[in-house]
Design a protein around this nucleic acid. Sequence first.
DNA 1: CCCTGCGACGTACGGCGTACGTAGGAGGGT
DNA 2: ACCCTCCTACGTACGCCGTACGTCGCAGGG
Lengths: 209, 209
Amino acid sequence: MSSREPLTRDRIVDAAVRLIEREGVEAVSMRRLAAELGAGTMSLYNHVPNKAVLVDLAAERIMAQARPYHVDSDDWRDHFRAHARAIRELARAHPRAFVLLSTRRLSTEAGFRTIEVALRNFERAGFRGKIAVGMMRAMVSYLLGTLMREVATSPELGGIALSPYEDVDTSAFPLSAEVLDELGTYDHDHEFEFGLELMIAALERYRPD
Amino acid sequence: MSSREPLTRDRIVDAAVRLIEREGVEAVSMRRLAAELGAGTMSLYNHVPNKAVLVDLAAERIMAQARPYHVDSDDWRDHFRAHARAIRELARAHPRAFVLLSTRRLSTEAGFRTIEVALRNFERAGFRGKIAVGMMRAMVSYLLGTLMREVATSPELGGIALSPYEDVDTSAFPLSAEVLDELGTYDHDHEFEFGLELMIAALERYRPD
DNA sequence: CCCTGCGACGTACGGCGTACGTAGGAGGGT
DNA sequence: ACCCTCCTACGTACGCCGTACGTCGCAGGG
């Protein structure tokens, strides 16, 4: 872990990103980071004002890793699907970091890249200006929501594992009881696509032409 | 702060809920909670196994505060709107707690109450069984997403305050530049309703009749 | 040659969650 | 009346945490 290179903001942020991806934000501590870099704890403070902005910087770095999607189609729906799936892949590739990103505002270059692509797709679909922003926000909300739920329920992250509904008397909830098995089951692929089509259907309904 | 009543799980959870609502989850600590109850720190552990489940219990308690909505209408759309707005009100009433709730699974009585109401509304709208569960999940995702965003961007919670897009060169993002003002502005009421109508439109499109 | 400034680091303080041991009192069995 | 058991309250202590502060060594310029 030791190294002869001098401490750099870059090196510190890199180490933070690696640690976040490996063990999650809660595993990040200044002491541990320093140890991993073979440096003294307080040396980090020569390059970073405090832990909060270090985490911000790490979030930004992760966001910058997002790669644009590519799709061969003129249909705006295909672009939506591809873009949404790309974002989902990002979330699944960095599940622990995603929760982090979702809380933060994306006012960086990388964030704008994503926004720009989305706006282009909305333009393709016939939405412009203010209405496009509203649509995008609704879309973002949906994506944020599903992906948060998907990440939160993935077992490898200490999410929900088994027998969630054991000690609740479901007799008072007849409709829930009817679909109890379904409520306890998650098919994330299917659910994501289902919701995505739902959103696209909604957009279609609002389209001018 | 002192009190002659004996320590109880109930009293401890209550104190935790109050503290969460006042200062957020991050302000909760066993020592502070004990002090607020006029008790020794370690006494809490006679009633609660550890902090994590204490926070879980607090989340559950807050969730149980949710009151059913009421609406005078036979139109399923009105029920959707009323239910969604009720959830939003809960989020706005307990913004600090909402982030907490959103992460956790709601396998309690209170959670089922909400699920049951939603399922009844979907039934009213013509959706049943598996498809209703899928719809509900899409709806939940959207609500979770918007409300997370709304809560995260509310300034009174240390959210985004001012001039977010200053040091980014927007010339590379023409579409974003065009709507830059819009991107920096939030009208949560309007956005929520807009997205809600979008979702309802989507459901309408999938309806059998 | 010295001086200045900066990066690296040690120490220390006040906080945290909680394992562990103890002490005291309440209740039941004899 | 006695004792024994068990439960609750609590103090101490350990190993973490973020970070304020002071010092030391070295590189570069005068």
